[in-house]
Amino acid sequence: MRLIASLLLLAVPILGVYTFMTAADHDWWFPPAYSTFAPDIDWLFDFIMYMVAFTFIVTEVALAWFVFKYSAKRNDKGVFTHGSHKLEMIWTAIPAVALLVIAFTQMETFAKIKFASGFPTQGRFTREKPIAQVWASQFDWRTRYPGDDGVLGTVDDLEASYEFVVPVNEDIVFELRSRDVIHSWFVPEFRLKQDALPGHTIPVWFNATKEGSYDLVCAELCGWGHYKMSGRVRVVSAQEFDAYQADLKAKWFSNGKE
């Protein structure tokens, strides 16, 4: 009986590890990483996951062993202990150190993506001259490009609904805004997620490494239509981006004949 019970417990880590190892084959794992900092994020994810996996396996095996070794039938008398000061010190210190290690390891990556100091300063798009403003509202995404004068918020701004088109292999800085409630701009392929707060203008940057069209989803429950708040980020070549801007401009100043 004790053997069955401990084997059942042992099945948990074995099945868990098996699931993780075969997840990629079933398409249960992350989508491919297509931004410059995505590999760093994935490395951090793996780092933390292996750390947690190691702890998980050790504790599960210990649990199974304890169930086997200390079954009530064989050990009918319990031993009373008032606790061990030393043991408590150890199991407090080890997680504390582990958390500090995680905190310090991720700091550089986090700063690179989110801090003002990490924002690109070279190239076409910077914090001073963002590529566009992306507006989140219940329940869609709209992009506002600065148009010919290069200044956002003027009458020649070009607007596009649903799609946000950016050039590939270029640092992209855009401003995220919300018209109503808190939304979150999330493109899984870029490993980038940023909340949009009403009243705030939040700069966001990324550098997409592969042309394609990626799902843009809202990652903050924003109301009854949250599930349908979708868009696309389309990454194109620099030439295609310029052609897109010209096309958008032509459509914007169309005389309605289309």
């Binding site: 219940q138 329940f139 869609d140 609904s161 649903y162 799609e163 239509g225 349908k228 708040m229 979708s230 696309r232």
Partner: peptide, 8 residues
């Protein structure tokens, strides 16, 4: 308004 784009 609550009418989103259905371009998907």
């Amino acid at each position: 308004t609550a009418m989103p784009s259905f371009r998907r």
